[in-house]
């Protein structure tokens, strides 16, 4: 089975090379999508051995994952793994996240930091993530233990079935919604998420981004 890891990256020059180097031996291929970075994220990812796609302008987390996943499909991926560039996930857990698909048990796997381990999380982020669980449950009918985790895997067939459009962070909710709509078999797998000063500074914090996500989802679902 060909496993391709897709890593969206926006101005991650401090961490992207280390992440790619750590992930490469554990996957058949690593695709980094440089989402319009103003630093040298792309060249560092390239030197570290990733295949690199560059968005000319910043489109957002979801758009980068969709670009990378399309590329992964075109390159014959049987399993697409989504991973973060800021080093908050453990590369060694890729095999655990892909195992249920390899063993033909499910088509989609969501990583869960609340089944697994979470280190150094801010209280505001914790509350926002817990609320996101109920929000996603309300929208999709699926109650996960961790609704906005960027560590996930989908089978080739599952990715082809899902219709994903969200360019920004709402992508993480949309994919759960699509799993429900397409009646795909899914499973949650415990993963470790380690927040560092770097990853905390680099990811969107607090509740304001969460409100933007809610707006994006409702716009997409009911208006357009």
């Amino acid at each position: 089975m060909k496993i391709i890891v897709v890593i969206p990256a926006y101005n991650e020059s401090l961490s992207v090379a280390a992440v790619v180097t750590a992930v490469r031996p554990l996957a058949d291929e690593v695709i980094v999508v440089d989402d319009g970075s103003s630093d040298n994220t792309a060249s560092l990812a390239l030197s570290a051995g990733a295949r690199v796609l560059q968005h000319l302008v910043n489109l957002g987390y979801g758009a980068a994952l969709i670009s990378g996943s399309h590329e992964a499909l075109a390159r014959g991926a049987d399993i697409i793994v989504h991973f973060d560039a800021d080093g908050q996930f453990e590369p060694s857990q890729i095999s655990a996240v892909t195992a249920p698909i390899v063993n033909n048990q499910v088509e989609v796997v969501f990583g869960s930091r609340f089944l697994g381990e979470v280190v150094n999380i801010s209280w505001l982020r914790l509350i926002t993530l817990k609320l996101a669980i109920y929000f996603t449950w309300f929208l999709s009918g699926i109650k996960l233990t961790d609704a906005h985790n960027g560590f996930r895997a989908t089978s080739r067939a599952a990715w082809q079935k899902m219709k994903l459009h969200q360019s920004r962070m709402a992508f993480s909710s949309e994919i759960v919604d699509e799993v429900a709509r397409q009646k795909l078999h899914y499973q949650e797998v415990p993963v470790k998420v380690r927040y560092t000063t770097y990853s905390r500074a680099h990811s969107q914090q607090g509740s304001w981004p969460a409100l933007k996500i809610i707006k994006d989802i409702f716009w997409n679902k009911f208006l357009s």
């Binding site: 999508v33 390239l46 030197s47 051995g49 295949r51 690199v52 796609l53 560059q54 968005h55 000319l56 302008v57 489109l59 758009a63 969709i66 670009s67 399309h70 590329e71 075109a74």
Partner: peptide, 13 residues
């Protein structure tokens, strides 16, 4: 547009 450009110019090591 941006996605198709990115994929058309995808690069390896």
């Amino acid at each position: 547009v941006v996605r198709n450009l990115a994929r058309a110019k995808a690069a390896d090591k």
